[in-house]
Design a protein around this nucleic acid. Structure first.
Lengths: 206, 206
DNA sequence: ATGATTATCTACGACCTGGTATGAAAAAGG
DNA sequence: CCTTTTTCATACCAGGTCGTAGATAATCAT
């Protein structure tokens, strides 16, 4: 017997995930302050009261969207930095995919949906700042983990300062996210990443 | 005879610069969207119609504030990267001053007033994006100029890839600006800069 | 002084914002 | 069928937003 017993009243026409999916693009381009609940409701395919009943208020929706984007990022980090291919190759893949993602907007380059929008609101919205800090930490930890794995597997010498290398990689990503939203062309961003990765690993003596 | 001939009608009680100075802190903490014209007028020490008559509209004020912050940044770059002291020492001074500036807020760490606020609005405000891109370019060019000066003066070997080094330095600054606004403590930011500078210049073979 | 000129401020208006009251719609239980 | 329960959507509200009209104050020219 499956759990097919339907709850009781009228069934929801859209789940939370479906609504969130519709709203992510809105917050990605406009951030928290430039999007109204009316626009969000239209994008979600639901009415405003449905959103309020499902999430509470506008800020809660924005936070859920940020969490959803972070989950996407974690998936992406797990896949591209799996440790099954050489370090340099995996990093190139990761950064190429990031550039692609940051510049994939149809009307404009949107950069990173978290770094590009939460940073402005974070000062006066503690929960947003906390979420932003969490994403930054997630990135740092993913790079650090992969670099440690490289040391363990003999890809990097044990003397390599993995913490400093981690920060170089994170900084590169932050900078690309910023420049993408400021309009730097994808080609320039790709050149930037390969140049920086070369330099970083030449310095690391890899 | 000085140019003391007063214009004609009632003299302005505040000049544009004085109004801008009062408003900079407002946009620094709240960005464009989170500050109302009423708040700006209060901070400027003028009334709303005075602001409209002096600047045009809210976006024009924000753009002027961004330009003013960029002028501050250019001054700071010119002074700290003058080329009169050793390269590494000047860079340490510049980054230490940046960390100090980014974390100097009384109630919260505000990061960079340009990178931290314009990035969210830039997507839908072309002039803001243009201003943001200009500031990014200003930073890149200042680092590049200083590094070229170092090569010319023999501080760096001619084979050093100054363009790549420039991007490493810019990325470091962007990352610090971001992390500061996300709440990273000044001590951690300082450790980050010295570690990264060490790594960068070990790689550069300086 | 008087009038011209420019700056300033109080008050307001049209609009938009986040958020909600109210009743209809869609399902299940009896 | 009718009731109960949950979701949905139109219409609405109070408050805030940007921007301005219109009257007043401060200065110069005569």
């Amino acid at each position: 017997m499956k759990k097919a017993t339907r709850p009781r009243g009228r069934p929801p026409s859209l789940g939370r995930e479906a609504m969130l999916d519709g709203m992510k693009a809105q917050f990605w381009s406009g951030g928290f302050s430039r999007r109204s609940m009316d626009e969000l409701a239209r994008a979600a395919g639901a009415s405003k009261p449905s959103l309020y009943s499902a999430f509470g208020d506008k800020r809660a929706i924005y936070l859920e969207v940020l969490r959803s984007f972070e989950a996407d990022l974690e998936r992406m980090l797990r896949i591209t930095l799996s440790g099954r291919r050489p370090l340099a190759s995996e990093l190139e893949t990761f950064f190429a995919a990031s550039v692609e993602f940051y510049t994939s907007g149809e009307n404009a380059q949107l950069g990173c949906p978290i770094l590009g929008t939460a940073v402005a609101e974070g000062v006066e919205e503690p929960e947003v700042r906390e979420q932003l800090a969490g994403t930054i930490r997630t990135i740092d930890e993913a790079f650090l983990k992969r670099l440690r794995h490289a040391v363990d597997g003999g890809e990097l010498a044990p003397a390599v300062p993995v913490e400093n290398l981690t920060l170089s990689l994170s900084s590169l990503l932050h900078s690309i996210a910023l420049r993408a939203r400021a309009g730097t062309e994808p080609g320039a961003l790709r050149a930037m990443t390969s140049g920086s990765l070369d330099l970083i690993f030449r310095q690391a003596g890899a």
